[in-house]
Amino acid sequence: MQPLGEGALLLECTPVDTLTNRLMLALADQVTALDLPGIEVALPAWASLMVLFDPLCLTRTRLEAVLTALVREVEPAPARPARVVDIQVRYGGEDGPDLPEVAAYLGLSEAEVIALHTSQIYRVMMIGFAPGFPYLGPLPAALDLPRRSTPRTAVPAGSVAIAAGMTGIYPARLPGGWHLIGRTEAQLFDPLRDPPTLVLPGDGVRFNAEAQRRKGAEGSDE
């Protein structure tokens, strides 16, 4: 547990795995439920928790003591997702321009990459990077590869991507360094919706391969 400036504490945990993620999520909920004056927000990430606080209202020593007590008692959030969200994906072609390269790098066929990517339910580890961007994992070991050496300046909205043992979905047109293997029409983020994100940490996500359509057969203009 370390200070992140005079008004934040960062709790970083190892190993970076699903159990740690479940603990962080549960801890964030408990910190929020404390409703302790001076605590502004608790933000869980993959394997860490950031707590923002007002140091004129609550000392770091006191906050650390409170967190330490919670860490000792905390039960991880359930392993089983409260709900599973199905995401339809068009793999390969213009929708997933990196699929051939990814398959070659991993020594698999494109069909095997798709089969592996759709083979399991992923856990939403965190939302970050951009509004509504879900970090999903863990990825099957056979799909593990590093980020692209040169990030793209613009990745189309809805792109489904993999990198560094994770998979994710770009909610909007954004710069990005992950490998694009497919694309979905699902709307990941809508600021006017409550909650604004399609999925929340702890949810499950299952990708389903849409029947491949011929190039130019559908009307998307992006």
């Binding site: 992140l4 934040a8 970083e12 990430a45 993959w46 394997a47 860490s48 950031m50 923002l52």
Partner: peptide, 10 residues
């Protein structure tokens, strides 16, 4: 590092 929470000022 695994992605972690950051804030303005970092």
């Amino acid at each position: 590092l695994p992605s972690l929470g950051v804030l303005p000022g970092v």
